[in-house]
Computed example of a mutant assay.
Amino acid sequence: MGETHSSIGAPTPWGVGLQPAAGPVKEAIHDFNTLVLWIIVAITAFVLVLLAYVVFRFRESANPTPSRTSHNTMIEIAWTVVPVLILVVIAIPSFRLIYFQDRARDADITINVQGRQWYWHYAYPDNGNFAFDSRPVPDEDLQPGQLRNLSVDEPLVIPAGKNVRVLTTGQDVIHSFFVPSLGVQKYTIPGRTLETWFRADHPGTYYGQCNQICGTNHWFMPIQVQAVPEAEFQAWVAEAQKKYAQADGRPAPVAAATVAQQMAALPR
């Protein structure tokens, strides 16, 4: 890709917290993470204050004759009802987020992702049905700007600002398609087709890895998503249709079925 993109989704040295959001799915994950974090902070602070009060108020010197009370109906109701209410507060946005991530609505493009030992296989059924493999760049071949164990020889190229439907499957064992900055994570399971989606709001390079321990070369499955403007994407598609074609001119075979067949096979 000839253009240099400023947005980069990758781990940073001594980084704390989640990677910055590059699309709506990760923004929703950030919001939910913040909600749960503040709930945890409030619970921790309450327990700490309560523990300090109990230690001070009921120390032996201030309370030489301890109470023998063993039950308190109101306290027992409170410590049952309050945790239930807290779990409800967490559960509602949690389920909303799960369903938000689950299926692409008004997808602009579909990409088939197949995990293999040990590399990724990508197919573009909406754009000529071409397919290619993606493997990490060896350390000795790294160019300036490329990241060790994250940069690949053939990145997954997508149009920026478009909803990308991802249909995953596995060839051999379970792998996991995981790009933190885009908020996408889905298992690739042999014999099953699963769906998820993401959108990169801005052009950039976003990195991920297989986060399912899938064998000896599990580390050998980085993911590099290259989000480019629509015009640049169309130019790349035209070039890719020729680059990944077979010698006789026919499109390279795609491991997965057509989009319609895959969507019909998805569990509802």
Rank of each mutant, 00 (worst) to 15 (best):
T69P: 00
I158F: 01
R250G: 01
Q146V: 06
Q262E: 14
Q19P: 03
F177W: 11
P138A: 03
G208D: 08
S181P: 07
C214E: 08
A231P: 00
G17Q: 03
A238P: 00
Q209P: 00
D102F: 02
R116N: 13
R250S: 15
L194Q: 10
G208P: 07
G183L: 05
W38N: 13
F46S: 14
V157A: 06
Q226W: 04
R148N: 11
V82Q: 02
W14S: 15
P83C: 06
P251T: 08
P159R: 02
R59D: 15
A231W: 00
Q246I: 01
V36G: 01
F56T: 12
H5G: 00
V36A: 11
G15I: 03
T73F: 07
E239A: 14
D153L: 09
N211V: 12
I86K: 02
Y119T: 02
Q234N: 14
T193L: 04
D102N: 11
L18W: 02
G145M: 07
V137P: 07
Q241A: 02
L35W: 04
G128I: 10
V16E: 11
I29A: 08
P155Q: 08
G17H: 02
A231N: 10
L97N: 07
D139Y: 05
M74K: 08
I29K: 12
V88G: 10
V179F: 04
C214L: 01
H71V: 13
R116V: 10
L87M: 13
H121K: 09
I223T: 10
R105V: 14
Y207W: 03
P144A: 08
H202M: 05
T65I: 12
I90V: 14
I174T: 14
G15Q: 14
V47F: 08
F178A: 09
V16M: 09
D102Y: 04
C214M: 06
L48V: 12
L51A: 15
T12E: 15
E27I: 01
T196H: 06
Q114S: 12
N211T: 15
P251D: 10
R116I: 07
A255R: 06
H202V: 11
I98T: 10
L142I: 09
V259L: 06
R268Y: 02
Q262L: 12
Y122E: 09
P180I: 02
I39C: 08
K242F: 00
A240Q: 04
V237I: 13
S176A: 13
Q261C: 05
R116Y: 05
Q234P: 01
L167I: 15
V237P: 03
Y244C: 03
Q143S: 10
I77N: 03
Q114W: 00
L156M: 15
T34A: 14
L182K: 05
D201S: 13
D106H: 10
W219C: 01
A252Y: 01
Q226M: 14
M221R: 03
L182I: 04
V41W: 06
I29R: 08
T73C: 02
A255C: 00
A240Y: 01
P20H: 04
P180Q: 14
F178L: 02
Y124D: 09
A227H: 02
F130H: 05
V137D: 07
L48A: 15
N72I: 12
Y187C: 01
T196G: 09
A78M: 11
S181R: 01
T193M: 03
S70L: 14
A252D: 04
A264M: 08
